[in-house]
Amino acid sequence: MTRTNLLLADDSLPSLLVAKAMLEKLGYHVTTAENGDEALTLACESTFDIIMLDEHLPGKRGSDIAAYLRQHDTPNTVTTLISITGEHDPQERARILAAGIDALIDKPVSLAKLQATLQSSPAALDDQTVESLVSDLGKDTAKRLLNIFIQELADLSRRLREADDLVAEIHAVSHMLKNSAMLYGATELAALARDLNESSAVTDSNAPDEAARLITLCQTTTESVENTLQQEFMND
């Protein structure tokens, strides 16, 4: 079985070696970098499935590398980017996410934290909902609508990353997703969106973490939709 290729960047050698050992135990093939310039060079030269970046790398911060990859045509423009950070300030966490980071792992890194972030399976679509779409609308229309849903997830994730008022944006995005996600059978995403939209507990202090949760679930849902498209329409 092919192992997932992961780039890990951390300037602390003890931390780098510990995280590398944990990731290899989880089955990842790990390439390491010890500064921002080295990490960016590797990310511009080779394709990775996941890139994990310490935020305070010498040379270039992890968020600077993320912003460059998102804004330029590189082998990792759409790769999953994860920040390893000790930042607890909500504004700093929001800034990191806005650079194009998909998820945050708080220091100190542990095996449990890595598993929780990296090994969440794609949020499966409800089979009956997909079957109803195909039955009611036909394969061509269902395929087109599922691709539109993928684009919506990307657009809404971008809105969260770029939001000036993150609390308001979480409510706006979750309001849209609680309905559209259910239409396509993304029940887990619909449930999270409904909870966030109806909750008054989203505040400036926890908004970056709630946005990260929503972005991560949008990403895993996208993977599930892509899997459904491949399996349902592979002979079209």
Rank of each mutant, 00 (worst) to 15 (best):
G138M: 05
P58K: 11
A123H: 10
R159G: 12
Q231P: 07
T79V: 13
L160N: 11
S224F: 07
L214V: 06
T32F: 02
V78F: 11
F233E: 01
T79Q: 04
A186W: 06
S15Y: 02
L146Q: 08
M52N: 05
I50T: 12
D106R: 06
M52E: 08
K20C: 10
L16P: 06
L114F: 11
Q71F: 04
D140E: 13
S15T: 11
V202F: 01
D64F: 08
S121L: 14
A142Q: 01
Q115I: 08
L125C: 01
L7Q: 02
E226R: 14
V18M: 12
D37F: 10
S205A: 15
M1W: 09
S132Y: 09
T85M: 07
L177M: 15
Q231F: 04
L145M: 15
L7A: 08
D140M: 00
S63L: 01
T141I: 08
K20Y: 06
R213I: 00
L23Q: 03
S224W: 03
A99R: 02
A98M: 07
D102H: 12
L137E: 10
E162V: 13
Q151C: 00
Y184K: 11
C44R: 15
Q230K: 12
A116D: 14
C218H: 10
L217T: 00
Q231C: 03
T31G: 02
T228C: 11
L23E: 08
I105Q: 06
Q119A: 11
L192V: 10
E152V: 04
D195W: 00
H175V: 13
S63W: 08
L196E: 05
I170F: 15
R161L: 12
R70D: 06
P90S: 05
S132K: 12
V130I: 12
T77V: 07
L104G: 00
L156C: 03
K113T: 12
L8F: 10
L104A: 01
L133K: 00
S199M: 08
L192M: 14
L53T: 09
D11N: 15
I170H: 14
Q115E: 14
L217D: 08
A186E: 04
I50F: 05
L156I: 09
S46A: 13
A116E: 15
M1H: 13
G62M: 08
S120F: 09
T2G: 00
T222L: 02
V202K: 02
N179T: 15
I65G: 02
L40G: 06
I148P: 03
L104V: 03
T228L: 02
S12C: 14
N197P: 01
I50W: 02
S200W: 06
G59A: 10
S132G: 01
S135D: 07
G59S: 11
T4E: 13
M234G: 14
A66G: 12
E92V: 09
A142P: 05
L104C: 05
D126H: 10
I101M: 12
Q71E: 15
V167C: 15
G100L: 03
G100A: 02
L16D: 06
